[in-house]
Amino acid sequence: MQAYDLNKNHIVTPPGEIALSTNQLQVNYGNSKQASMVNASLSFPRFQITALIGASGSGKSTYLRSLNRMNDRIATVHGEIMYHNTNINSPKVNVYEVRKHIGMVFQKPNPFAKSITENITFALKAAGITNRQELRQRVETSLKEAALWDEVKDDLNKSALALSGGQQQRLCIARSIAMKPDILLLDEPASALDPISTAKLEVTLKELAKNYTIIIVTHNMQQASRVSSYTAFFHLGHVIEYDQTETIFQTPTIQATHDYVTGNFG
């Protein structure tokens, strides 16, 4: 692999309202001295889709999982994650509230072994929503937003495990947005799906961006260029370049980014 200067970078701050930003974020897994992610400082614009791209092992998933503290048990994260003027990377912050406002959808669909309805209502009930009318309303709205309603509205009591992979992933999105989060983190949500399901999912994501700030990790560059308005390129635990998606794909500043998006990488 060609050696690039990892300290050479080009990072912009998007104009307008910022939903979430990180400052000098560093992640160490377990007791490892070697950081998997160093000095990542990025700002994510509100109601936009931001894509994180890079080869496997570039640290993009590690970075994403740190944003709602999913790495708490397996890694130590240094640096600031600013959300609503609060550093949510502080041990004093209520991590459950963080995750309620910053939802996450994973690489592999992981619905609960419960019915479609229960998949959505389980966390709502735990959060104290008991009004049946409201629960039903939230199930319907979130399934509609995730573009799954028409396919499942007649068998909401069916086991979620009986759905297809693409449907399961959209259910996981519905489950997340039923909590009315502010930000949605998606970790390669389409990697386990077929092309048709992937296309459907991308349409859904664009719809969702009207109401949510979305940060999506993807190894699929076409996907990044189709759905996102901003793109960050990660390499070996460093953020190399962050700019408008068009700029990243057409006129990148850094050589490494150029090589990666044109396929001349490694």
């Binding site: 959300y83 609503h84 609060t86 949510i88 912050v93 209520n94 735990a126 502010d182």
Partner: peptide, 16 residues
């Protein structure tokens, strides 16, 4: 301090 900020700073049902 906005509403979300307050929620982030105080324990909730889940913490209990």
């Amino acid at each position: 301090m906005d509403d979300i900020q307050k929620k982030l700073a105080s324990p909730s049902k889940a913490s209990h």
